[in-house]
Design a protein around this nucleic acid. Structure first.
Length: 289
DNA sequence: AGCCAGGATGCGC
DNA sequence: GCGCATCATGGC
């Protein structure tokens, strides 16, 4: 790729729904404006918008190689092939049709881990507010175009690790404060090597994440989905419990263990995407947002 | 007022 | 092994 340096790029896309993708509970910093979606990728401000078959990206620093953005947005994934692996049953078909174009992002592991530690027992809009406040208080101010409100990078593990539980509690993190602090100290000290998880099998990567207090099966699988791209991760939260029970168990209550076993067997080799489609479809129905 | 939110943990049984 | 209370906060 030897293009020229540009601040704007346009990408031809097929079967891509940018709004659904940025607003489906996998990333928490994207904000809708009159001109698209503003957010931060790899510590830099970006604005994304979509018109039909085109996604437009605007950044503050001239870029020659846009592969980082193609990777983040997963522009090159074969969504048709993935959808073809879904089970051929009515609920899955409904969700697939309703969420056409929804993708899984490929996010930074630390930001994703920290974000989902904070997500515990919180509504999505509260998670967004928490992360906005945390970034403002502990991140660095970054360059934005003239006239745009200030933006801050997501705080590094080092910045959090140097902090104190009580100070974090004042940012309204609640019982999540010690969890985030421990995670930051594990990562910044090298006790947990997030880069190394890319080359581990799913079960080992999951076990590594679950060494952290405050990280159980569900949060671990969210990170394995949204940052690492493990195809067999299948986080089950309250929305997925509702979805699975309503669609596959006649509305009856089912123990979590049983739901996990069902998901493991039923949703095929791309459970990652099947999960996100069911989740988003469930949340569209009676969305609190 | 009580219940719920992209949960996890520690306790009693 | 299971169910249950508890953790902190905000919105309905």
């Amino acid at each position: 790729m030897d293009g020229v340096f540009e601040r704007v790029a346009n990408f031809s896309v097929k079967d891509y729904d940018l709004e659904a993708t940025l607003n489906s509970g996998q990333a928490f910093r994207w904000e809708k404006t009159a001109d698209g979606w503003e957010g931060v990728i790899n510590g830099r401000w970006a604005r994304l918008s979509q018109k039909g078959q085109w996604i437009r990206a605007e950044v503050t620093h001239p870029v020659q190689d846009w592969s980082w953005l193609r990777d983040y947005l997963q522009l090159d994934c074969n969504i048709e092939g993935i959808v073809a692996t879904f089970p051929d049953d009515p609920p899955m078909t409904r969700a697939t049709r309703a969420c056409h174009g929804l993708r899984l992002l490929r996010q930074d592991p630390w930001e994703c881990l920290a974000s989902f530690i904070l997500s515990s027992s919180k509504q999505i809009r509260h998670i967004r507010e928490l992360i906005r406040a945390l970034s403002k208080q502990r991140g660095k101010r970054i360059t934005v175009p003239e006239g745009r409100p200030p933006w801050f990078s997501f705080p590094t593990p080092e910045a959090i690790a140097a902090d104190h539980e009580e100070a974090l509690r004042q940012l309204k993190l609640g019982f999540r404060a010690p969890y985030l602090l421990e995670a930051a100290r594990y990562v910044s000290s090298g006790q947990l090597n997030l880069e190394a998880l890319f080359s581990l099998p799913l079960e080992q990567a999951r076990a590594e994440l679950m060494r952290l207090s405050g990280v159980g099966f569900k949060i671990a699988d969210c990170v394995l989905l949204f940052a690492y791209g493990f195809h067999s991760a299948f986080p089950i939260d309250v929305w997925m419990i509702k979805s699975l029970q309503a669609n596959y168990f006649g509305g009856k209550r089912v123990p979590l263990k049983e739901l996990q076993a069902f998901a493991e067997n039923h949703f095929g080799s791309h459970r990652d995407y099947a999960q996100q489609y069911l989740f988003h479809y469930q949340r569209m129905g009676n969305s609190p947002e």
